[in-house]
Computed example of a mutant assay.
Amino acid sequence: MEPTAHFTKTALPGIGARYDLDTQSGRHLSVVVHQDGRRVLGLHDPEDEDSCRDAAQLDPGESLALAGLLKPDPVRYLRQHVEIDLVTEHIPVTKRSPFAGRVLGATQARTKTGASIVAVLRRTDAVPSPTPDFRFAIGDVLVVVGTREGVDAVAELIAGG
C-alpha cells in the first residue's frame, strides 16, 4: 500500500519538529516530535489550524504501539480473505538419512512433495535459499515450507521412509 497522505514538517528549534497532516475528511492532525523521543499528538480546530483542541503526550513505547496499530497490514487482509494453508517445519538430517552427504537436488523434494526447502541451518550459520548443488551434512536442520502434507512428505523423504 503506497502512502498517499503528505505531511508538512516545521522545525521547532530547541524542541524538535512538528509534522502536520490534513486528512481527506478535513481534519488537521499534528505530531510534535521532541528531541528526547516524546511525541505529542494534536487534534486541531478545522477553522484555526493553530488552535489545538486536544493533545495526547506519548512516550516512545506508546508511540511505537500506536504506530503499530495505525499501520495497515496487507498480510492480515490476505489471511482474512484468502485461504493460505502453509506450514513451516524444521527437519533434521540425521546419520540415518539417505541424503546425509548428498546434494539438495538429489532429494527432488519440491517435485515429489510440492514443499520447498527454503533454508538450511548448520551449527551457528544459516544458508537461505540453498541451491540444488548444496551438500547436506549430518546435523543440518532443513527449514521446509509447504502444505501440511507436503512438509510431512519431505520429513519422511529426508528420514529415509
Rank of each mutant, 00 (worst) to 15 (best):
D125W: 15
F136L: 02
T131R: 13
T113K: 10
S116V: 13
V103E: 08
F134Y: 15
G139Q: 08
P132I: 07
D152S: 10
P130Y: 15
K112G: 00
S116K: 14
A115N: 07
R123K: 15
T113A: 05
V127C: 11
A100V: 09
A153V: 10
G146L: 09
L121E: 07
E149N: 11
I117F: 01
P132Q: 11
R135F: 04
G139A: 09
V103M: 12
P128K: 09
D152N: 07
A100T: 09
G101N: 10
V145I: 13
A109K: 00
A126N: 05
V145P: 11
K112W: 00
E149Q: 13
T113P: 08
T147N: 01
A109M: 01
V103L: 08
E149G: 06
G139V: 10
R102H: 13
A126H: 03
L121I: 15
R102P: 00
F99T: 06
L121Y: 10
F99I: 00
G101W: 13
T124V: 09
V151D: 04
S116R: 07
R110L: 08
D140E: 11
V151T: 11
R123D: 10
V143M: 06
F136M: 01
T131W: 14
S116C: 11
R123H: 14
R102E: 04
G101A: 09
T147G: 05
A100C: 08
V118C: 04
F134N: 02
S116Y: 09
F99K: 02
L142E: 13
D140K: 10
F134M: 00
I138R: 10
A155L: 07
F134T: 03
S116A: 08
V141E: 02
A106N: 07
L121A: 12
R102L: 10
F134K: 00
D152P: 00
R122G: 02
A109F: 03
P98R: 15
G105M: 06
G114Y: 13
A137H: 06
V144Q: 02
G146F: 06
A115C: 06
A106H: 10
F136T: 03
V145Y: 09
V143K: 12
T113E: 02
T113G: 12
V154D: 03
I138G: 01
L142K: 14
I117E: 01
A137K: 06
A109L: 00
Q108M: 11
V141R: 02
V118H: 03
